[in-house]
């Protein structure tokens, strides 16, 4: 046999051996009989290899069952119950496989991307024919952060968690104990919603600010997730805005409002454009980006918000 056996080949032989064993295999059995483990350099090397493979197989949905001998309790054995890891019978059409192929491409390089691809591979085992896909249309999302897997598992098992969290404003880190309820994606970020035990209130945590591991701090089934979901607020268009825009400029803003008149200013003729907005601060971000091309006439709070931004940037140059 070869000098070094590839990890995927070793795991394949382990899966076959543990599915075929009559009762169970001990670590000794595995080390002496299973291809790929036979050439491990030392006891420690074998242990590391076996533990890593066990963890990989658990992630793949092929859990290794641990069995102890009734007579010799220290003598631990292992097996795999093949019947338990079988995919239920399903019927996937080529069009549905096409949709799944598109779905598996959604996540940009992350653990989620790898999981989706592996799931797709498993489904290909039972899909006949070649998949058909809609041309050209694709969704690309920033995948959830590493904490997500642990959070979802805690939610499924109804278990409280503890993690270190970096606050958005102060940048300070605190340890938070939370009863996790659900996770949602908003504004290109992922949030955990739950009950913060220390503050005794509902809180939302951006998962990218969770530092390090998420720890379980209670028994499964020890929390209750409220059924009611707060309704998502509708966008309301309210505040009337008047802007003085240079000719041929800010077409994207013009498209959302209407040109009422034009005015002479010391810096030239400008069109007066009116539109309604729901969020003045949001519009200030956009208007400031146009620099001198767009001047806010009304409301004063929007004008101040834009000027505050412009003055701050004006101070960034060398000629302060």
């Amino acid at each position: 046999m070869r000098e070094r056996v590839d990890a995927s080949e070793r795991m394949l032989d382990l899966v076959i051996a543990l599915s075929h064993t009559r009762h169970r295999m001990t670590k000794d059995d595995i080390r002496t009989k299973v291809n790929g483990y036979r050439d491990s350099a030392s006891h420690e090397a074998f242990e590391r290899m076996f533990e890593r493979d066990k963890e990989h197989l658990r992630e793949l949905g092929i859990p290794i069952v641990t069995l102890t001998d009734a007579v010799h309790e220290d003598d631990i054995g292992y097996r795999i119950d093949t019947a338990a890891y079988t995919l239920p019978p399903i019927d996937l059409t080529p069009a549905q496989m096409g949709v799944l192929s598109v779905a598996a491409e959604v996540w940009q390089d992350s653990a989620f991307a790898a999981s989706a691809q592996r799931g797709l591979t498993k489904l290909r085992a039972v899909a006949g024919g070649t998949s058909t896909a809609a041309p050209g249309v694709a969704l690309r999302m920033r995948a959830p952060d590493p904490a997500m897997t642990d959070l979802l598992q805690a939610i499924t098992e109804r278990a409280p968690v503890r993690f270190t969290y970096r606050a958005a404003y102060s940048g300070e880190t605190t340890v938070r104990t939370v009863e996790p309820w659900r996770v949602h994606a908003r504004d290109r970020g992922w949030y955990l919603v739950g009950h913060d035990r220390d503050r005794d209130a509902q809180r939302s945590f951006r998962t990218s600010r969770i530092i390090g591991k998420v720890h379980r701090v209670g028994e499964p089934g020890s929390i209750t997730i409220p059924e009611s979901r707060p309704p998502t607020p509708e966008r309301v268009f309210r505040t009337p805005v008047r802007l003085a825009i240079r000719p041929e400029s800010a077409a994207a803003l013009r498209a959302r409002g209407s040109v009422d008149s034009s005015m002479d200013t010391p810096s030239g003729v400008r069109d007066v454009v009116t539109l309604d907005v729901s969020d003045v601060e949001n519009l200030a971000d956009e208007v400031a980006g146009y620099g001198a091309a767009v001047v806010v006439l009304d409301p004063p709070e929007l004008r101040e918000a834009v000027l505050r931004r412009l003055r701050a940037v004006a101070a960034l140059g060398g000629a302060q």
Binding site: Y85, L87, V99, V126, L139
Partner: peptide
Amino acid sequence: RPLRLSPGEAVALLVALQSL
């Protein structure tokens, strides 16, 4: 036997489909 999906694989695909 075809392999069943692990929870991580099922979630990654289902959330992607819901996003789509």
